[in-house]
Amino acid sequence: MIGSVNLLIGLAMGLNLMALGSSRLPSVIRAMAVQGVALGLLPLLMSEHFELLVALAAVGTVIIKGFVIPHLLRRAMRAANIDREVEPLVGYVPSLLLGAAGTIAAVAVTYRLPLLPEHAHTLLVPGSLATIFTGFILLICRVKAISQVCGYLILENGIYLFGLLLIRSTPFLVESGILLDLTVGVFVIGIIADRIQRAFDSLDTRKLTVLRE
């Protein structure tokens, strides 16, 4: 069980780096979507016996993170005719190295944290820290609104992963948190993409600076 959980989280950590290293928006979106699916499956593996609510939440997460949101983003991209290059502020190689350093640091830091024994051998905490860090790098180092949205979603994936630490003790709270989070996420992103797309021809956040007053 721990093996497959770690495998999925490891995959998510790899996808972090893939999102940092890819120069095309569609591949960033794809990395984010696959990560969403991988992480969405986690609750199923982690709970000891089958629970309907958990299964529903998991399926919902997979559908929304893996399909709905990517679809919204792709549509926004097509509709606004966005150039598919990512346009990094910080180059791909440096952000990749930064992400890798963050991942290693996350693993190193986790060994020093006073974790419950059942969490000490999973990648939950380092995976979550690394994913949050990756989200921040994407938010800081990328120019386009779509890649910023992807950064935000990856950040959110990290927070979600952290929340899974509590799934044993308060499963219901975690489930409802996830669902609430997803709903808000879909709304916010749908609205943002739609608004930006209408207000500007491009989805370039640099142009949002004219709104600062």
């Binding site: 290293g21 890798a100 290693i104």
Partner: peptide, 14 residues
Amino acid sequence: VPLLLTAAFLLCLF
């Protein structure tokens, strides 16, 4: 190419 090689390096590093 450097990006791909960096990725290879990171794989080995991990």
